[in-house]
């Protein structure tokens, strides 16, 4: 099993930390894992992306140009990465701010309205955990309880009181993700 995943959106959306928590939970399930961010002058408001590779064998290149799964959180990222998904792959996108929805017919497409849902929850910062919940539903390669454990291990202890809220967001994401076009 090897999954090559790109997560792309605006800086400040929690793209890198979402990737990190996913990578941490994959590590806890004894997978090999690489996490490589675009580390340019990305910042709040700019674009940000991270490549996460999860495999049961040693991973050679952390740099890849074709992905099994793309999680797309804004229009510029959709334009950049829709064509980089392998045929038969998966595209998950947040509908918020997407003017031109994805059109490919040779991949499975899921929509998750995480931005709108986060606005109705107590903490809008739970946005990235809603999206991660959606990924977990579509690609259940790590267990939910290991994501919770990964949160516990990666968050400083002063933020541990936020873990129940993040768990709720993860479950919400699993609930609200919906197929647009599946193979």
């Amino acid at each position: 099993m090897k999954k090559e995943i790109i997560i792309a959106g605006f800086g400040g959306q929690g793209v890198l930390s979402m990737g990190k928590i996913f990578a941490q939970s994959a590590l806890m399930e004894d997978f090999e894992v690489t996490w490589f961010p675009a580390y340019g002058p990305e910042q709040r408001g700019g674009t940000a992306n991270v490549t996460v590779i999860v495999s049961d064998e040693r991973i050679s290149s952390p740099i890849i140009s074709q992905f099994d799964v793309a999680i797309i959180l804004n229009q510029p990222s959709l334009e950049r990465f829709e064509s980089a998904i392998k045929p038969g792959g998966i595209l998950i996108y947040d509908g918020y701010g997407i003017n031109t929805p994805p059109e490919r017919k040779d991949i499975s497409i899921y929509r998750i309205d995480a931005m709108d849902t986060a606005a109705t929850m107590d903490n809008v910062k739970s946005f990235n955990m809603i999206v991660l919940g959606g990924l977990l539903k579509v690609l259940p390669i790590v267990k939910l309880e290991n994501i919770i454990q990964a949160l516990r291990e990666t968050l400083p202890s002063r933020h541990h009181h936020l873990i129940p809220m993040n768990e709720e967001a993860l479950r919400k994401g699993m609930e609200i993700i919906c197929p647009v076009h599946t193979l």
């Binding site: 990578a23 090999e32 690489t34 996490w35 490589f36 961010p37 991973i59």
Partner: peptide, 10 residues
Amino acid sequence: DGIIGQMMEK
């Protein structure tokens, strides 16, 4: 280099 410095692995 920036790749090995910035990437995460186990």
